[in-house]
Design a protein around this nucleic acid. Structure first.
Lengths: 267, 267
DNA sequence: ACACTTAGTGTCAATTGAACACTTCAAAAC
DNA sequence: GTTTTGAAGTGTTCAATTGACACTAAGTGT
């Protein structure tokens, strides 16, 4: 019976709704100026120990509430930061190393912000793909500053967030080769060059223009609009849209990019 | 300051080493008699409420200790049950629905076995691929019976373990088409037919014998042995081995099976 | 010796992949 | 208003891979 008493004390005094042992973190990808970027936040320390907080970025994340599932928690974090919902958001890995919280800076921050700063926290990492033009950073409680940083220029992050970001990038590279999800990073209307540049950026290799166009069009995942660019100082490019409905209803082949050294098996 | 006191009471009385909020579950695949199977356990209820326990299977799993990471916890569960280590074991998804623990049977079991039976538990699910001949079920504390059940005959399981199993199966089908991991389900030496039957079972479709052999051999992932079958009442088949070293060192192309309706992009 | 069963083998047509260069269109520069 | 500039857009050819397809080989059992 003892554990019931302990349990109720625990629930009452630590927090009525936050589970102190599980968090979600969102690796939010955007694409602008021909660069793949992550949306990172500068941590807000309530009882400001300013020198520690100095230029210390982190992935947006939060503890999971007792009444929400993991997907909901991730969607909440995303919405609180960007104001957006209905975004591509996919769990990709849980991280639970007991040592992920041992950096001095992290411990200082946790002491200011968590009721149980020594607790082991495992985190479930999500990746989000966003058209970064749509993002309006919300004046939120949990970040005083948010920035889009090119993935090549990510500094040292809080906790194990560098590991998580790298994991997300690897997951993105793989997924993009199997499913047509890259479109989530572009605006509604985009040119074929936009799309190709995006793929080249993610995959870090050059693609043949003519082959790319042919395959993309044959795949049926995009539709040409009558509309073209205006006011560009060269031949205006046609706009395309992603056939989200077709793809989501499974009426369409995958966009399946070959991986380095791979080959296809079987009849 | 209050939370420190609570924290220490909590840690002392609930459990010194178990984190009550995160568990791991292992979906253990095996392949025998031309069937894909899962290794499931019958739950052991300490203060036996026998009628509730009746033929109620579950995935092997356990709470995660404070001093181990998630992979280690999963490996521990696997070893405690099968006696094996160094097995293919891969995290594939975290499950954290608040309602995953609401079945009456589950709650009864938790009350008998957990110090904090009402706690929200999220679980990190792993899939393991095993040569089922190697498994010697350990007379373990946490299961009084373990069985290999064909995936087509999985009954209702504890918690959300049916969801987890289905997720594992889907993950296996996808992974097997990208990486040469199916071999983990076979003995060291196997025939080409063994391998083909395995792929056909996992993918649930027939494959052309001649094309299969050609692709497998060209891929370089297997090597023919001089040895052949003995004592079979038909033409004896040649044995092959999986080139684990080559594959793990990345010196080899993937085994990449085409998916339904897919097509490959790019030069 | 014959029946039975599974192993093992090759070719051809169709598809897909990869490499490759010139013309078109608009604005800007002159 | 002619020319320059820069990105868009377009087909073909050859090589490699895929997929379909049917018979012979090598053992055991009768």
């Amino acid at each position: 019976m003892g554990y019931f008493a302990v349990n109720s004390i625990y629930r009452m005094s630590v927090s009525p709704s936050l589970n102190p042992h599980v968090s979600v973190d969102c690796v939010i990808f955007g694409f602008s100026k021909e660069t793949l970027r992550l949306l990172l936040i500068k941590r807000t320390v309530p009882n400001a120990v300013t020198e520690l907080d100095d230029s210390y970025y982190a992935l947006p994340g939060d503890l999971v509430s007792d009444n929400e599932n993991l997907d909901e928690a991730a969607a909440r974090v995303l919405k609180e930061l960007t104001g957006l919902s209905g975004i591509f958001l996919q769990q990709f890995q849980a991280f639970g190393d007991p040592l992920r919280i041992t950096k001095a800076k992290d411990r200082a921050w946790l002491k200011g912000v968590r009721q149980d700063p020594d607790a082991r926290v495992i985190t479930v990492a999500y990746m989000a793909l966003i058209d970064s033009n749509k993002v309006q950073i919300q004046p939120g409680s949990f970040s005083k500053e948010a920035v889009w940083l090119p993935i090549a220029e990510i500094p040292e992050l809080a906790f194990d967030h560098n590991d998580i970001s790298e994991g997300a990038l690897m997951a993105l590279r793989e997924k993009v080769q199997i499913q047509p999800i890259a479109f989530e990073l572009l605006p509604e209307k985009f040119t074929m060059s936009d799309l190709q540049t995006l793929y080249e950026t993610i995959l870090e290799r050059d693609l043949d223009k003519r082959n790319f166009r042919r395959k993309m069009l044959n795949s049926g995942v995009i539709t040409a609009l009558p509309e073209k660019q205006h006011g560009v100082s060269n031949k205006p490019a046609r706009y395309y849209v992603f056939n989200r409905n077709l793809v989501e209803n499974g009426h369409l082949g995958f966009v399946n990019l070959k991986m380095e050294g791979s080959f296809t098996l079987f009849s």
